[in-house]
Design a protein around this nucleic acid. Structure first.
Lengths: 218, 218, 218, 218
DNA sequence: AAGTAAACGAGACGGTACGTCTAGTCTTACC
DNA sequence: GGTAAGACTAGACGTACCGTCTCGTTTACTT
């Protein structure tokens, strides 16, 4: 018997299915180990032991430490993807900055993020994984914030979609880069004062450097 | 390794004089190994072999891999500390951005910088070493650029030295962060177009946001 | 392959019966793997794959590698259990020696026999299995040869059955032991010359050392 | 013993010399592990732990389990190389048989000997190692026993050295093979009764089957 | 024709050991 | 005392098999 229509899912594959509990346990164990040990002391064997799982089960799912950690950390970033409307561009950006900083202050992300980025400089597959699992999702916040600002009339609509995408990339690099650099390289706190000053600089720049806003609102 | 001529140096004690050649050879070997292997595959034994030196000699001078690599890449950053006056703030900043980006494109820095930063999130001594060897030296460029812009009348003089330092830190985090993020996380080229767009955003922000800060409450 | 017709076996057991083809395929695959890989490199998974069978099917039938191999090589020994009458004790023993040696020269037995014997030094059940599947069957040849020699008058009849059994064991250990040692430990060929010399020594000893010499001495 | 004059190697080699204590500790640990666990359960890691040594130290000296075990049991065989003169060929042979059997009854040899022989069927280097470390040394006992018997007039002198060597090989295979087969395959005790019966068979065969003894005794 | 029970293939699972690699230390002889 | 060479302990690496366990499917012998 064949599945009548959508043959994609079903249980088609033979053999024992992979345990979904194991996936969750491994990712949780990875995060716990990151908090306790940091990236460089984290070992696959230790993660397996914490998850109550054999090492082979890890390697069946992830190619190595980097891939595992990316997925483990990605889950944390997912939790911060909602962006309440604070009423103004300045307030929205401040909000994003502080939420992103709060994430970077967590020991599991602080120690892991730079490490996987470092690893990715030599591994294109890993870089793609980081991008799709972490970076691109955060970028949606930039797009959302811009739309709102445009709706409010704080920012002009950009006619050319290529220019629009390029600007979004630029703004994302500026926000994410500045926060990361402040938090991890300069090792100074990203507190509300800093967020306000940084956002003021950025918003002023946006208003002044982007083409004139259209006369009419929406 | 042959000492170039007869005796290396003239001291009453035996043993000491090998140092200078060994230091340079080790640092050069470290950079070469970084280019070929990247941070994670670089090993102390390999560096020692490339430098024609015993592992003992490495450990007598550096505490570990991270320390060695920081010193090895720090030398590269030193070479970029001069800042020719391009005549305007916009041109000066573009120049800094492109020079910094050129440095980050080099394989030995690309792979090493994020790695030692990651390592430093758990090691204060290492963070201090990175700061003094790399970060703080780059920051002088920001101070120099601001002075020139103030002298040209492009930026106001900041009365309060605390605010002035805070602003310098902010600008430095924005510039360095954005470039690093663009180059290593987004993995897009930092080309003159991007540099111009980024600089325009920053300079516009500085002009609009700086003038009236000190007595702000809000 | 389908069972030719009607009911193949006659079992009251419910459920699907075990596949007899699988048994044969597994034993053949085991022998093939022994030839190619030798005992220590032979793996259950490989045997299963060669036999076109799942690992579970192996373990449903045999407890482990040793048991499987014993059964796989036992079949080879069965094929050599007929002993043509060569007309004299000397000729009969030479024949047995050469046939046994021919078996030991086969790569699948050469590599497997010592290995399972080694394993059996710590496993009584395995030793019993080897004994009943291989050793005891060969011993019947000794008994048969003695009977013939006695019928020919070459050897005396032994009155005491206990002594008779003990002598048979001794002769079996001498023949099998010498051939095995020559072939596997000394690693020298068991050729007709050696067989003749060895048999001469043994037969002379039997004639001289057994209790009652036959009517004709030497 | 110290090489008083002709220094074999000197310490010419640079670097730290290998620890002789480690060698002894490893071999002793291997024998202990053999007694407790047997060949198949013995692991390199366990031996290293027992010896208080890192695994790398084992692998620096031996290529694998087989090589290590051969060397470890070879030492035991060395201890049995003296052969007191019991006054007659029969007594000498009985003595050898019982001493050899005593060695085979020891758990470390029982489990190891067959295993390394099995392994050697696929590894010529290993077979050579077994030969030189164990087999050939035992063969000297056969040569010694024959010399004594010839001196006593119990056995004839063999004129042709080739024949003499061939006979020694044959006798060795018979003795060693029979004892090993009795002890390990038949798994019956090699007690004085069996030794006497076996020796009687062998000695009678030797007297009858070898060429005429020289007319004069001694 | 439907039901039942075992065997079957596939492959994931918890384990254990493998043999290799690297870090960082220690020991030797030389200079 | 500094050095080159290399042995040392400690422990992670990623792989290979082990023998067991699910799965979903197939194949007989009942009812």
């Amino acid at each position: 018997m064949n599945p009548p229509a959508g043959r994609t899912s079903r249980t088609g594959r033979p053999g024992r299915p992979r345990s979904p509990e194991a996936d969750l346990a491994i990712l949780a164990a990875t995060r716990a180990a990151l908090v306790e040990l940091g990236w460089s002391k984290l070992t696959m064997g230790d993660v397996a032991a914490r998850a109550g799982v054999a090492k082979t089960t890890l390697y069946r799912r992830w190619a190595g430490k980097s891939e595992l950690v990316v997925d483990a950390v990605a889950a944390l970033f997912d939790a911060h993807l909602d962006l309440p409307d604070r009423g103004s561009l300045q307030a929205d950006v401040e909000d994003v900055v502080l939420r992103f900083a709060a994430l970077l202050e967590r020991p599991e992300t602080k120690t892991a993020l730079m490490a996987v980025v470092a690893e990715s400089t030599r591994d294109d597959a890993l870089r793609a994984r980081i991008r799709s699992a972490i970076v691109d999702r955060q970028k949606t916040l930039v797009l959302l914030g811009r739309e709102r600002a445009q709706a409010r009339g704080e920012l002009p609509y950009e006619a050319d979609p290529v220019t629009a995408a390029r600007n979004a990339d630029l703004i994302f690099d500026v926000i994410a880069g500045a926060v990361v650099h402040r938090a991890l390289v300069s090792a100074e706190p990203v507190d509300p004062d800093w967020a306000r000053a940084f956002t003021a600089l950025l918003v002023a720049g946006l208003r002044a450097a982007l083409p004139q806003p259209p006369p009419e609102g929406r």
